[in-house]
Amino acid sequence: MQAPPQRLINKVVPIEEAMAFIEDGCTLMFGGFGGVGNPPTLINEIIRKEVKELTLIGNDTGFPDIGIGRIVSRGMAKKIIVSHIGSNPIAGKLMMEGKMKVEFSPQGTLVERIRAGGVGLGGILTDVGLDSMVEEGKQKITVAGKDYLVETALTADVSIVYAKKADTFGNLIYETSARNTNPLVAMAGKWTIAEVEEIVEVGELNPEEIITPGIYVDRVVKSKGVDWKWAWE
């Protein structure tokens, strides 16, 4: 039997080692919004490794040739849980052809479900979707005389996030809109891999700027940056 992966103090590893966590059929949660904040080097390696039958959880499906959309457009996902797919027509085509299951969740609800998963809650209560098709198949409860839907928490086998800077323990700093969803996604994976632009030693980051504490991060890989030729391979 293969030994389980170790929890590390110095979490910086070659990308090939980090990719050992991402296998066929796994549930993969990704940070970012419209492709911004998706980890490009990890996505490229997933494509190169030809990982298949993925369940993807994140805000959206990016664009056909940008971000997580590059994985979706290649038919590598069997199911996605997202707030919308409108910017990626290939995702819509795969859904209509029955080649990929799509679970839609309102954006705020989706983010809260991820947050709930990250902090160990079973789910959240929301009135969004009451008396609509969103209600189908979901539990409804009444609290203090008001009805709510129970939306289950979301977690993943692996979370992949993108950050501006990290130290070797995995404390993360994000840049501008790349902060969208990444901090919550980092909390909700059984294993979390952070792709970062710059890596420094422990103690070199300003504690006031750290958004994701390293306790949530298991592996750190150096980003190779966005190479747009990937989009047309």
Rank of each mutant, 00 (worst) to 15 (best):
P14Q: 03
D65Y: 14
T142S: 13
I211M: 02
F30G: 04
T27L: 02
P14R: 04
G58V: 04
L130P: 13
T109D: 11
I193G: 01
E201L: 07
L172E: 08
W230K: 08
I68D: 06
M29D: 07
I22S: 00
V226H: 04
V36C: 05
G203A: 02
I90A: 09
G225I: 02
A178E: 14
A153I: 08
L56D: 07
G129P: 09
I15W: 01
Y162N: 06
K101F: 08
A91T: 13
G189N: 03
E17F: 01
V111D: 13
D147I: 09
S177K: 11
T152G: 11
E135Y: 07
N180E: 11
G62F: 09
I90M: 10
G25S: 01
L8E: 06
M187Q: 04
Y174D: 04
V217E: 00
V119H: 12
M96W: 15
N182V: 03
K138E: 13
I15V: 05
S159Q: 06
E135S: 14
N182S: 03
E103M: 11
G203I: 00
K11C: 05
A153P: 08
G118L: 14
Y148G: 06
W228F: 14
G67E: 09
I90S: 10
G32N: 08
M100Q: 08
V150F: 15
D157M: 01
D227S: 06
V217H: 00
F33C: 09
E201V: 04
L28Q: 05
E50N: 13
L130E: 14
M19A: 01
G62M: 09
M95Y: 15
V220W: 00
N88H: 11
K224G: 07
T181A: 04
M187A: 04
T152A: 14
P207G: 03
Q139K: 14
V200K: 06
G35Y: 11
I114H: 14
E23K: 13
I141A: 05
E209I: 00
I9C: 01
N182T: 03
K52Q: 15
E17H: 03
I210D: 04
E198A: 00
L56N: 10
R48H: 07
G214C: 05
A144P: 07
F30C: 09
T168F: 03
G122V: 13
G25T: 10
G203W: 00
S105G: 08
I80E: 10
D227V: 07
K165I: 04
T192Q: 00
D65L: 11
L42K: 01
I71N: 05
K138D: 13
E16N: 02
E53C: 08
I46Q: 01
R115C: 15
V221F: 00
E135D: 12
